[in-house]
């Protein structure tokens, strides 16, 4: 099992995919975090004075800025995990993989573990980008960057955990939808289009909101405990978000269910 783990780690690190994705994520998360920090910092006072404007207490600003790692960046570990499986299908490298390790379940288990670690690393990288750009801008605009607060570092830990779980979900999605193009289309369509619409749609009524909070993105936000999408109290109404650990369990359950479904359907199929 150790050998299989090391081999899977080797596969991940010997193509350009991981650092290309990491670079794009740094740019995207860094830009978004910097933008939000600047926006809240500079406009916070003016917004606060106007009736009906979105209200955000000052102590919630730094978490919203830092949680852009998951709020906008979760798609990167998700795609990394998906591609870790579908690229093997696309380039027919499952053949040498299963020749070297005929116990297919071990290969999938090793991929899940390696990608969990990679997702956590993506979380750390994302935090460096979000804090590296967000904190100085917050400080410069006179808002508390809260880097010395233990709550901030607890938040950071939950962000790393969420990113790890998203990568694991990605492996599950890849094993369930082995066709690379189909898998990427599904991931992008769901995360960028279907889920945002569902989250907004379900937030209209109380009974739908109690279902909508179990959507993967909502669960992720619950786990992290902060998100630019939930900070203004859009949606939810009187329905509480999930507890952070409940959100984590929803994500974990999603990952386990899709991985097991993928194993039972496509992973054991004939490799022709």
């Amino acid at each position: 099992m150790i050998a299989t783990l090391r081999a899977e780690l080797g596969k991940l690190l010997t193509t350009r995919l991981w650092w290309v994705l990491a670079l794009i994520m740094i740019g995207y998360v860094g830009f978004t975090a910097g933008l939000l920090a600047g926006l809240f910092g500079a406009l916070g006072d003016q917004l606060g004075g106007q009736a009906g404007a979105p209200q955000l207490p000052p102590e919630a600003i730094a978490p919203v800025v830092y949680s852009t790692v998951t709020a906008v960046g979760y798609v990167f570990p998700l795609i990394l995990g998906t591609l870790a499986i579908t690229s093997e299908v696309r380039y027919q490298t499952l053949t040498p993989t299963f020749l070297a390790q005929p116990k297919r379940g071990r290969v999938l288990a090793a991929k899940l573990m390696v990608l969990a670690a990679a997702g956590a690393v993506f979380g750390v990288i994302g935090l460096v980008a979000a804090m590296g750009l967000g904190a100085p801008i917050l400080t410069a605009t006179g808002t508390d960057a809260a880097l010395d607060a233990s709550d901030t570092w607890a938040l950071a830990g939950r962000i790393v955990l969420a990113m790890a779980l998203w990568a694991v979900v990605g492996v599950g999605v890849g094993s369930l939808i082995p066709n690379q193009i189909a898998a990427i289309v599904v991931v992008l369509a769901f995360t960028q289009f279907v889920e945002p619409i569902l989250r907004f749609g379900t937030s209209i009524w109380e009974w739908t909101a109690s279902v909508g909070r179990f959507l993967p993105g909502a669960a992720s936000d619950a786990l992290v405990g902060s998100s630019v999408f939930t900070a203004f109290g859009i949606g939810g109404g009187s329905v509480e978000m999930l507890e952070w650990w409940q959100g984590g369990l929803v994500l974990l359950a999603l990952a386990v269910v899709v991985a097991i479904a993928g194993y039972l359907t496509s992973w054991r199929r004939d490799i022709t």
Binding site: A7, G10, T15, R16, E88, Y91, T93, L99, A100
Partner: peptide, 26 residues
Amino acid sequence: TALEASSFNPGRTARNHLAVYAIAAG
């Protein structure tokens, strides 16, 4: 075993390709 000539990730070098499976197989 050598099956068809296309079981490679085009983004990986030949040395790394072999190294990955050498590690997996001990």
